[in-house]
C-alpha cells in the first residue's frame, strides 16, 4: 500500500523524476527495450467484454421488461418511504446489536462464571438459529403470551406491543448482538497484553485502561467487520417482509403485484439496496482510515487522492513502457 503511495510523483515530469532517483550524478540513459507482449491479457479482456455485452444486450432488448416502469417507480413516494424504513430498521437494529454486543462481550470475558456462561448461552441460541425463524417467533409471540406484564412498570396486550416494527427490531437486533459480541471479543483480545501492563504500571485504573488504551486499539479490529455487518444488515432487513413491516422489498413488491411489473419492481429494490450499501461503503472506508492512525506508517490515500495519483501516474506508466 505504501509502495503505491510512494509512487505519486512530486512533479509531473517523469524524466526529471528518473534523474533524482539515480542519486543525481550523471543520469544514465533510459533503458530502451521492447516490452514483453501480453497476448493472453488481450484475449481474456476481449472474451470477458464480449460475454458482458451479451448479458447486457439480453436484458436491454428483452421485450417483456418494461424499462420505463423502472425509471418511473425509482423515485415513487411509496418506494422512497420503503427505502427510508429499511434504513431506519437497519440503523436501529444495528445500534441495538452493538450496544448489546459490547455488553455480551464484556460478560463473556468476565471472570464471573455465571455471567460468562449466560453470555455464551445467548450467543449459542441466537447464532445457532436462523434469523428468519427468530423474526417469526417474535411476530407470533402473542400466540403464547397474550399480555406483556412487566409488573407495576408496564402492562399491555401483546398484540399491541409486538407490532411489525417491534418484531422486526427485536428479531434483527437481538440476532445481531450475538454476532457483534464475538466481533468485540475478538477485538479486545487482539490488543497486546503489554498495553494493559504499561497502563497499569502508570497507575491507570481498569476502567481507564479499557477506555483510553484497549478499546481505541480494539476498534481497529472491530470496525471493518462491523461495517460488513451493517452492510449485511441493510440486505438482511429484507427478511422482515415476513413480519409485514413495510420496508423497501415489501413496498416494491406490493406495487409490483398490483401493476403487473414484478421483475421491474425487484430491479427498483435492487437499485436502492445498491445505493445504500455503496454510500455506506465509502463512509466505512473513512472510518477505517481514522482508526488506522498510528498502526500504519502512512495512512492509505482517500479515494480522491487515489484518483489524483492515478491521473498523474498514468502518463508515467506509459512513459516507462509498462
Amino acid at each position: 500500500m505504501t509502495d503505491k503511495f510512494d509512487k505519486v510523483p512530486a512533479d509531473p515530469d517523469p524524466s526529471a523524476d528518473a534523474v533524482s532517483k539515480t542519486g543525481g550524478d550523471i543520469p544514465p540513459e533510459a533503458m530502451k527495450a521492447i516490452p514483453v507482449r501480453h497476448y493472453g491479457r488481450w484475449i481474456s479482456a476481449v472474451v470477458v467484454l464480449a460475454l458482458l455485452a451479451l448479458l447486457i444486450n439480453a436484458f436491454a432488448t428483452a421485450k417483456k421488461i418494461q424499462w420505463n416502469a423502472v425509471g418511473e417507480y425509482v423515485f415513487d413516494s411509496t418506494v422512497l418511504a420503503g427505502a427510508g424504513r429499511t434504513l431506519l430498521i437497519s440503523v436501529l437494529a444495528m445500534i441495538m446489536g452493538v450496544v448489546l454486543g459490547v455488553i455480551l462481550a464484556v460478560m463473556r470475558m468476565s471472570k464471573n462464571p455465571v455471567t460468562s456462561s449466560v453470555a455464551w448461552f445467548y450467543i449459542w441460541i441466537f447464532r445457532g438459529t436462523p434469523v428468519y425463524v427468530q423474526l417469526l417467533i417474535w411476530f407470533n409471540l402473542a400466540l403464547v403470551f397474550e399480555t406483556l406484564n412487566l409488573g407495576p412498570i408496564y402492562k399491555d396486550e401483546m398484540v399491541q406491543v409486538m407490532t411489525p416494527f417491534m418484531a422486526a427490531l427485536l428479531g434483527l437486533g437481538l440476532n445481531e448482538a450475538a454476532y457483534m459480541a464475538e466481533i468485540c471479543r475478538a477485538g479486545l483480545m487482539a490488543v497486546d497484553e503489554g498495553q494493559t501492563e504499561a497502563a497499569h504500571a502508570l497507575g491507570m485504573s481498569h476502567g481507564k485502561t479499557l477506555r483510553r488504551i484497549v478499546i481505541p486499539q480494539a476498534m481497529r479490529v472491530i470496525v471493518p467487520p462491523t461495517g460488513n455487518e451493517f452492510i449485511n444488515m441493510l440486505k438482511t432487513s429484507s427478511l422482515v417482509y415476513v413480519v409485514t413491516y413495510n420496508e423497501l422489498l415489501r413496498a416494491t413488491s406490493t406495487i409490483g403485484s398490483t401493476s403487473y411489473a414484478v421483475m421491474e419492481m425487484l430491479f427498483v429494490a435492487c437499485i436502492w439496496y445498491l445505493v445504500m450499501t455503496s454510500v455506506f461503503s465509502v463512509f466505512q472506508y473513512y472510518l477505517e482510515r481514522r482508526y488506522a492512525r498510528g498502526s500504519l506508517r502512512q495512512l492509505p490515500p482517500t479515494p480522491w487522492q487515489k484518483v489524483k495519483a492515478n491521473m498523474l501516474g498514468m502518463g508515467r506508466e506509459r512513459g516507462a513502457g509498462a
Binding site: Q195, E197, A201, Q217, G294
Partner: peptide, 17 residues
C-alpha cells in the same frame, strides 16, 4: 503504582497516540 515508573523490554508505547 503511580510512584513507581516502569520501562519494559518491548517498550509497550501506546501505538494510537
Amino acid at each position: 503504582r503511580r510512584d513507581i515508573g516502569m520501562v519494559f523490554q518491548r517498550f509497550n508505547l501506546f501505538p494510537h497516540m
